[in-house]
Design a protein around this nucleic acid. Structure first.
Lengths: 358, 358
DNA sequence: TGACCGGTGGAAAGCGCATTCCCACTTGTT
DNA sequence: AACAAGTGGGAATGCGCTTTCCACCGGTCA
């Protein structure tokens, strides 16, 4: 029933297991041609498939990369996952997937599972949470990862570093200029919008969201505009929809002649889509009754109408770089604090129809 | 540098490795409370993390589920992946991800990698290809999987069975009524559309696409309508876009009074979206100048405008069921040919704005 | 011709853990 | 009081593979 083993192959070929191992798997030493051929034939006839578990145990390297995302069905994460997958393939590794619903507790659990599996590297794509209620889980996560890295594991994190995790060998962060890009976006929007600004953000304490909000407010201030009102909701399409519904009600109860339509900045594209859906449902038009902008420029945004203004981020590349960075030689001077070098992630503000003047 | 081992923990606790193993991992025998506590403390203080590789080797079960998809960034696959992930979590397994670009050769490679890792089960979500050029790769894939199953591996496949793989223990197929649903859709569309029908399908030989086309033509015939012209292109958004561009050119060069607008059936939703985008780009409107329908009802379709008619498929559930089915007791009478029992996958035709009469 | 050497295959020691005996000991019987 | 049954812990074996280390063989140089 069980698969055949190296020993069986060796016996059939009339050689020692050592020799069989040398010919079947890449070894520094290559046995003679005649022997090699015999072994190969034996393996073939037995349908031998090397047991990667045993190999991993013997040479203590599993060829596994653990990927932690909030939700694999979210286009933001699936785009990053694609990049990770591609880098993994290039480095001849396989990716182990874990989804966490975004809680640090879930991330800790996933990290522990990856550590147990002795993954060569762990890549964390989800945003950090600085909420007070998550602080205990954050510490546990940091402790788990610190132990993992101390034992020789590699860690790559997208965006902000793990809270409470000190710089250490094998730990790399891939910075994403959320704040800066949000600032640029705000500046661009302020130049063409007279009306008030509203920000629809994720939960307070979600790092990525907070950074974008901060940058946006900063950009507004730089343009001499008052700070935008901030609505907190789920960092998802439905969160955007809920906020959009609220905003629609507000707009409807307002005399039409009272100034310019507002400009709504959503923390990410899926939220922006939710907002547009909600406004549309209430009979409001974008950009007529309200301008809307998002963030990320997820792939399928291009077919959405009205075309959404957003900030383009090379998601696929982010996934690739963070993976490659994590796998890179940990001895290279490159602490987490300074980020993964040679791979600056840059984004682009893209103004489109959804924020065009009415 | 290396992580601490069970033996170290045992020594620190002053017990044998056997005892340490018994308390730290679920065993039938539970050592005394005092001892257990000592061992647990020792493990804690050493930061012991069990080596899943070694455990897997010792008890020959890895807790791994291999998932093969064409493209994880495609919403169809990421929705299924989410279901697989959820089932895996429920069954306390982790999922190993492989993307293949849809070629049987890639699937074979992935299957081999999973077999080497001794995954408890392999789940294949991508569609089969019956193209002549893929036949060699298909045989290799079947051979690989047959060996895998013979060695005790479990296999779950979405949709059509693996070509050339006989029914065998541990191999289950989750049938998806593509043909039947496409027939229903055609019937529904035929009832409201006078104009000609056009089918934009995936590459000839892609099983899922072929089934849908066949069902659609059949439904048309049942309604007394002539067979639709079939355009073959890539089974993706861009494939749809290309076909849409062609169709748009054709529509434009046609006198406006020449009969009813055509009704275009796309093999899946992302293709439909591509088609709509292409038509729109050429200044044509949907459903005014052409009706468009898709298949799958992927999640983010609801925010797309015009709302697309399609066939709803419980993708998340498909992922769950195929995984659970693969993991289920292989001795239960349930050959691949008869599908995974107790889990009939049903879809629903959903007519929406994109196919409403002009 | 004898000492030295690169090269080749085998023996054996793990890698970290689960598990099957096996033994010493504590309880419960008549 | 003697023995059976039951219980808790340890020693040893093996999972399948990699990797020193060793023995050996033909060949080279002095």
């Amino acid at each position: 029933m069980a698969a055949s083993t190296l020993a069986e192959v060796a016996k059939l070929a009339g050689v020692s297991p050592a020799t069989a191992s040398r010919v079947l798997n890449g070894s520094a030493r290559t046995p003679g041609a005649g022997i090699a051929e015999r072994v190969r034939q034996a393996a073939e006839s037995l349908g031998y498939v090397a047991n990667a578990q045993a190999q991993a145990l013997a040479k203590s390297s599993t060829g596994l990369i653990g990927l932690i995302v909030h939700d694999i069905a979210d286009p933001y994460f699936s785009a990053i996952a694609q990049g990770v997958q591609s880098a993994a393939r290039q480095e001849r590794r396989m990716v182990l997937l874990a989804t966490t619903d975004g809680t640090p507790a879930g991330e800790k659990e996933a990290a522990a599972a990856f550590a147990a599996r002795r993954a060569d590297a762990i890549v964390i794509a989800g945003s950090r949470s600085t909420r007070a209620e998550d602080s205990a889980a954050n510490s546990e996560l940091a402790a788990e990862l610190e132990r993992y890295c101390r034992n020789g594991g590699r860690l790559g994190v997208v965006g902000q570093g793990i809270i409470g995790l000190p710089d250490m060998a094998g730990y790399r962060t891939l910075p994403v200029p959320n704040e800066e890009l949000a600032r640029e976006l705000a500046a661009a929007l302020a130049a063409t919008h007279e009306g008030p600004f509203v920000v629809v953000a994720g939960p307070d304490g979600l790092a990525t969201s907070d950074e974008r909000v901060r940058g946006f407010q900063d950009g507004l201030a730089g343009a001499g505009r008052p700070a935008a009102e901030v609505l907190h909701t789920a960092f998802s399409r439905n969160g955007g929809f809920d906020a959009g519904t609220q905003l629609a009600a507000r707009l409807a109860s307002r005399p039409t002649d009272r100034g310019e339509p507002p400009c709504i900045f959503a923390g990410n594209d899926v939220m922006a889509i939710g907002i547009v859906a909600a406004l549309r449902k209430q009979g409001l038009s974008v950009p007529g009754d309200a301008a809307v902008a998002g963030f990320d420029d997820i792939e399928w945004l291009r077919d959405f109408r009205p075309e959404l203004s957003t900030v383009g981020l090379p998601l696929d590349d982010i996934g690739r770089q963070v993976t490659l960075g994590a796998l890179a030689d940990p001895s290279a001077a490159n602490p987490a604090a300074s980020g993964i070098t040679g791979t600056e992630i840059t984004g682009t503000v893209r103004l489109r129809r959804s924020t065009e003047g009415a």
